[in-house]
Write a protein that binds this DNA or RNA. Structure first.
Lengths: 157, 157
DNA sequence: TTGAAAATCACCCGAAAGTATGAGCCTAAA
DNA sequence: TTTAGGCTCATACTTTCGGGTGATTTTCAA
């Protein structure tokens, strides 16, 4: 939003400066009649001014290339399952909700989505939504990966 | 080195184009005497051309702005491989073959059939056959169940 | 050597899983 | 009070999984 507005402001400013320069030139023309004998200087000045303007515009308008560097940070999991407590820290760290954890637990027991839906008295679609969100939060693509990661993180028994 | 040279070439080209345009305008001036009655159009054209030139120059000469975003991606690693003997008794009890066990192991790591195929240098269809046979032998219907049962039986780490 | 089991691969088809999008409801926090 | 997030569900679509069947090749033990 703000971006578009600022671009419009640039365009307006550009137009205004063009108009201003033309007025200035008209005035100069009337004042000194420089048109005839300083043609080259005149053109050169215009060219210089608008080349600068173009450069300035380009600098303003080009959006920077975004270069993403992914730094892999290794974290060693020392946790043997440590009983059954679903590890609050990890849970909040991954932003996993109660429902999602429930779904994950039932997944790890080998239930399919339909069975999970029945167990939790929810619709199949709801389970799909929960599992999709869960996968995204765990950064995995499949339920088997979710189970594996869940175990490693101590989210599962 | 090549960079500086190319920049020089650009400057030369710029100067040449400026000279060329001035010549063209001179020629037009001699031909049609357009200077007097089309002042605004004339200035506008010049402005447009050199603004474009400026933008082009800027694009060529300035090194692209690069905005670097560093994303930290956490990789979770279980430290001890915990060498596990795949429980010979259970294995023969369920009549599970080597290949089937390999497939089960990779399944439990979250790989899909295509990935398992790649890992074992086999075709997708072969993996399907193995997993089907495995499921039958373990008396399960899904890979998630196979994983769960495999862990319980000590077939997996 | 031969026969059974294992291993390999193919094709088809239906079921399950997963993706994308949108929407309505409810609650807790700002 | 507004808003953000969690929970619920739907539709439509693509991909993966799993079952069924059949075939060839390899291995290995009787």
């Amino acid at each position: 939003m703000g971006n578009i507005f600022s671009k419009n402001k640039l365009v307006i400013f550009y137009g205004a400066s063009l108009a201003g320069i033309m007025l200035l030139l008209k005035w100069l023309e009337l004042r000194f009649v420089i048109m005839d004998h300083s043609f080259e200087v005149y053109i050169g000045a215009i060219a210089l001014i608008f080349t600068s303007l173009g450069i300035w515009l380009a600098a303003k308008l080009t959006r920077p290339k975004i270069e993403t560097i992914i730094v892999e940070k290794e974290i060693f999991i020392t946790s043997p399952p440590t009983g059954n407590a679903p590890d609050e820290k990890t849970l909040s760290k991954f932003n996993i909700s109660k429902r999602e954890l429930e779904v994950l637990k039932l997944m790890s027991e080998g239930l399919n989505n339909q069975e999970i839906a029945g167990r939790l008295f929810l619709s199949l679609n709801t389970i799909k939504t929960h599992s999709s969100n869960l996968f995204e939060k765990l950064d995995v693509k499949r339920r088997t990966q979710a189970i594996e990661k869940g175990k490693r993180l101590g989210l599962l028994a």
